[in-house]
Design a binder for these strands. Sequence first.
DNA 1: GACCAGGCACATC
DNA 2: GATGTGCATGGT
Length: 221
Amino acid sequence: MHCVKDNGKKAISAWYESLFGAFGPQGWWPGRTRFEVIVGAILTQNTAWINVEKAITRLKRARLLVPRRMHAVDVAELAEQIRPAGYFNVKAKRLKNFTAHLFEKHDGSLDRLLRGNTAGLRAGLLSVSGIGPETADSILLYAGGHPEFVVDAYTRRIAVRHGLAGEDAGYEELKSLFMENLREDARVFNEYHALIVKTGKDFCKTKKPLCESCPLKKFLN
DNA sequence: GACCAGGCACATC
DNA sequence: GATGTGCATGGT
């Protein structure tokens, strides 16, 4: 809906400056290779990162954190390895869907998957069952360096609680709110999303709509 | 034991 | 087009 206030628009960039000033660069994504970033993006769907780390460690130990090997492995074996990340049957299929897409459409090359027109790449990623808007944007931004803002549960919560968006705001609407009020810079989008997640984790540990003692107020007003 | 965590697809109305 | 439900482990 059109619940964004004018002062809210200014707040978008002001929050970024405050958060960055207070907490500094976050150095995201927490993953060493592009493939690890992509796998992490799928595994972290509705899941605490600590559990994703356990799954990634197991994948490394099993030598499965390589596109060709993940593509070849049996889905049941993959599911067993990612068990700690939760929803393991669903996510194993999603990882296999992704590697199938990678090999069938891009010859197994992450370079080819991530190179080119951003909108076209996004559409390609969204065509994979199990990759929705947030996962696609995470992959584009953190594995590909494309300037796409990532909206997640924390982003929504903060925007709604501080009156910048309505409860019913959709993904694209929230994404536009941020992208239209920041300069188009992948480094800024990278740090901003990371800072939102960090502060959300540290200070905002409840889903309940009101958080009167929210320490973020200090930074977000 | 209840609640939550960096979503998404699918069924149903 | 909106709303509801299944998926699952592990930490607080």
